[in-house]
Design a protein around this nucleic acid. Structure first.
Lengths: 136, 136
DNA sequence: GAAATTACTTTGCGATGTCAAGTAAAAAAG
DNA sequence: CTTTTTTACTTGACATCGCAAAGTAATTTC
């Protein structure tokens, strides 16, 4: 039986679509929060939803804004500063691309489970060590 | 109509299950490659599949091994060193947990698309600026 | 009017990722 | 046979990144 199609092609598992700006735990949470709240979220709402510290969130917002993924709006409400963040149209597009790439990761990863049995010991009988390999 | 259940709870979008060791572009690719090749992969196979440089791959393998996620085996084959990497049983478990968390991210993110229409302008009529917000 | 709170921003630093350079052995070239 | 090239990695240096602590500025409470 032959290898699964394309399984060994160069870059098959490179996942170039995983944009580093979004592929970060905290920022992925921020993006997802904003995706689910089209009307935008306030600084403190984001802070709680993503369990971030003030400084941390502030920095990530800056990065996301500089990347053109979110819009940031400021005002004074009841004599206090207030910051609102929303996904930019561009940000929404790029986030969807990111999610699509992540779906490919999941699909690839789970496809392995299905194949597990039949591929058992394709290269080695039991453990590699019986074939002359040494650990470390 | 009330908010969707739990939508605003603290940490709702924190995604603590996204282990930093695996949540890295290159290493995510390595883990997925290894998940789909239960028999293990050679250094050069991984290098090509993930489009990594030698040094880069070497470093990531070290990190994954130190985290107990993969097993690394060495031998000489045809008088040349050869390195084989495989998921450890523990690594497989933890990778599955990671993937499950990532599925939650996708589910959350896509649930937003479905709700987009009905949530339109919940907080603001059109753009925030008409309500006293200023950009930046 | 001093202290505390709110809503952030800035700073410092340790950790991380990346690429270039290095190593060691074998194979190929001359 | 010895110099160069190739293979298969490893190590080192640098630059970036994320994070928490400290800082700021306005407001409110005591």
């Amino acid at each position: 039986m032959s290898e699964r199609r394309d399984e060994k092609e160069e870059g098959r598992f490179a996942y170039e679509g995983l944009d580093r700006v979004m592929h970060e735990k905290a920022r992925l949470g921020i993006m997802t929060s904003l995706a689910t709240h089209q009307e935008g979220l306030l600084f403190n709402e984001l802070k709680e939803l993503c369990s971030l510290t003030d400084g941390n969130l502030s920095r990530h917002i800056q990065v996301l804004q500089e990347a053109g993924l979110i819009e940031v709006w400021k005002r004074f409400q009841d004599r206090r500063p207030q910051t609102l963040c929303r996904l930019s149209p561009e940000g929404r597009k790029r986030f969807i691309s990111y999610l699509e790439e992540m779906e490919r990761v999941l699909k690839d990863a789970y496809s392995a489970q299905a194949n597990e049995a039949k591929k058992k010991s394709a290269r080695f009988l039991k453990n590699p060590d019986i074939q002359g390999w040494t650990p470390a």
